[in-house]
Design a binder for these strands. Sequence first.
DNA 1: ATTCTAGCGGAACATCCGTTCTATGTCAAG
DNA 2: CTTGACATAGAACGGATGTTCCGCTAGAAT
Lengths: 220, 220
Amino acid sequence: MMAKGKLSDRQRRMLEFIQTHGREHGYPPSIREIGRAVGISSTSVVNYNLNRLVEEGYLDRHQNVSRGIRLTDKLGDAASRLADVVRVPLVGRIFASEPVLLPSTDAPMFGADEAIEITRGLLPVHEGLFALQVKGDSMIDAMVGDGDIVVMRRQPDWRNGDMVAVWLRSKEETTLKHIYKEGARIRLQPANPTMKAIYVDDAADVEVQGKVMLVVRQLH
Amino acid sequence: MMAKGKLSDRQRRMLEFIQTHGREHGYPPSIREIGRAVGISSTSVVNYNLNRLVEEGYLDRHQNVSRGIRLTDKLGDAASRLADVVRVPLVGRIFASEPVLLPSTDAPMFGADEAIEITRGLLPVHEGLFALQVKGDSMIDAMVGDGDIVVMRRQPDWRNGDMVAVWLRSKEETTLKHIYKEGARIRLQPANPTMKAIYVDDAADVEVQGKVMLVVRQLH
DNA sequence: ATTCTAGCGGAACATCCGTTCTATGTCAAG
DNA sequence: CTTGACATAGAACGGATGTTCCGCTAGAAT
């Protein structure tokens, strides 16, 4: 006998199929389609197990409605919750030796064939974002390595402690640093606590290109 | 006459209804439901306008399938691209001084109330994943800082060059390193190229806890 | 042994639903 | 005015789909 709260193998496969079918087709499967997929010849058996899944809280059903099935979020299935994503254009690369290439227009994604998708929950803001891929090992003091993707927000203003991409005019160099205003001068603090800060006397020498919101490193 | 590429008021309302219906019920509306919602008595008229919307690229339709409608992303609707998300349980924290806390069961998300959502495109695999938040600055040689989130895959085997979380039995220490087998001994290479590798003579001394797939750093 | 329940299979049924056909009206082009 | 494309309405048809009923089996409970 099947213990309460447990799912049979068939029921697990049914859930998985409903999940997959919804993702691939945009609508739920019919009873007969479910039966065909998991190897049940009788529609009444599919119906029976669907009702069991409703009892266990995995499904909602609408009576007398074709494909009237909805997955609940009991499985933690992403498709059932409104976790939508933000599409961030990948506008280029970032070197130490060049200023940040800012997106030329504010028109979102216009002509940007490359982009990465980030779930909304990972980002505090969702507008004015763009992404750059770091080239080379020059940003190691910011704990950012070769190939890492930096998601930034285009904004000229900043607050103490923000991590920003700055272009140092005198050095002709782009770096990622935490920025602090200390009286007349500006302190640029590496994220790596074992490294020392840089002090800039002339505030006009630092050009803030954007505020870093997220760093993503993909390992293969 | 209706200009090419333009939508009539009816068609706009149809699109909006299909969108809303999908969000509220989990499945698309039938032709008659659409007609009722936008004030069309004839099913053939709804059918006609649906085909027009397909021509304009707003819809996909499956023939002879009830509710066989899917919205394309032409409207920029987030709901149409909300399926590509993987939910990764955030099972704990990772210290240098303790072994990695592995998820006790393989049952997905069991009891894990905390989780992060990652878009599928960012991860090469979507199973057996769990996430840990790094506590402290002890992983700086892996370019991983305090508060960073490490997404790992539970797997005992590894290949040369993989970045893995290892527990060094003799040192009683957890680190994140690139791992290489060099003859009898094992080389553990920090991600930071300015730092030196560690060599372990006894292969039994290293216990691979998981393979690192992704590192995410959120700046506030 | 008997009873009861969970689970399965098959068939019949009513309805839901997409498709198709015919008819009507509108409006601009000829 | 005539023509033709476009849009709409209504009705009918057939297949798709959910529901229900009956019978069967295996195993646990009595």
